[in-house]
Amino acid sequence: MTDTDDSAGLCAGRVVAVTGAGRGLGRAHALAFAAEGAKVVVNDLGVGLDGAPAADSPAARVVEEIRASGGRAVAHGGDIATPEGAASLVAAAVDTFGRLDTLVNNAGFLRDRMLVNLAEDDWDAVMRVHLKGHFLPLQHAAAYWRAETKAGRTPTARVVNTSSGAGLLGSVGQGNYSAAKAGILGLTLVAAAEMKRYGVQVNAIAPAARTRMTESTFAETMAAPGEGAFDAMAPENVSPLVVWLGSAAAGAEVTGRVFEVEAGRITVMEGWRAGPTIDKGERWTPADAGEAARELLGRAAAPGVVYGA
């Protein structure tokens, strides 16, 4: 990482909070923001892959990396899926660096099971960290930015949420994770519409990279390449787009969007759009509704394949 200061870089002087930033994608994002001049709040609860408490917290190590390269950062170990933890995340940014400009919601873990074996606790835990863990930091950041706007200091604020291909298409054995990640997409669209008046732009990414959450599932396809080759599955490949979305360079028109990002590929996802339609002008019978549905399906584009199907 190059030396960082407030005088250079795409995010020079901005204050950025990244959740789940101790490892994997979050760590890569935090380092990339710092390399572009941002002051970074590095949040990580330090839990294991399944959300259980781990022996150490990696947030401090990421802060040390940033500081060793000339950047400014502070660790935050609060649970952002609680109101107190989410509020303290925003407070850490404001108290340490004077404000908050960008929120990157990234924290998450997996508890994969087929639906018939999925325990209620596993459903609740994944929903809590992914969906509630996006909502609460977003809500507290939004309240801060709304107050700034009312005080005559309209921010140039950015939020980057983290969904997944599982949220776009579904993934076998990940009913809880897929539902949570799909919910994040809906939350992104609503937040973008509601928060635009306060100078806040909200977008989401659906990344693919080699992390603790993917290494067992994609062990062969996500293996690191030989020396000198492009590491297509490195989490650092995702971060440049996240940094741009979190910067002032992403203009006012860039909001309410979802991007798939993997290796060297960026794709704008176009979401649910109205396809073929038939309007009878009166109530259908079940048999006629079925015939109409068959006709419409014959004219419609085929859906994407569920991961693992």
Rank of each mutant, 00 (worst) to 15 (best):
A86E: 04
A55D: 15
V40G: 06
D101I: 14
A119N: 00
N105D: 12
N117D: 15
A125I: 00
A87R: 15
V40A: 08
R128C: 03
S57N: 15
S88I: 00
E65P: 02
A87Y: 00
F33Y: 14
V74W: 03
A55M: 02
K132N: 14
W123C: 11
E36F: 10
H76Y: 13
L103M: 06
A107W: 06
L110C: 10
R72W: 06
E84H: 10
A52D: 11
A59G: 12
V40E: 07
A119D: 13
D112C: 10
P58R: 11
D101S: 05
H130K: 09
A91S: 15
A107F: 11
R128D: 12
D112A: 10
A92S: 13
N117W: 00
V74Y: 02
D121N: 12
A86I: 08
V41E: 07
D44S: 10
D121R: 09
T96R: 14
A87W: 02
A38N: 07
V104Y: 12
E120G: 02
A32S: 12
F109K: 00
R128T: 14
V94T: 14
R67C: 11
A35G: 14
R128M: 00
F109W: 14
F109P: 04
R99Y: 01
A55W: 00
R128Q: 13
G77K: 01
N105G: 10
L118K: 04
N106D: 07
L45T: 03
A60K: 12
E65V: 06
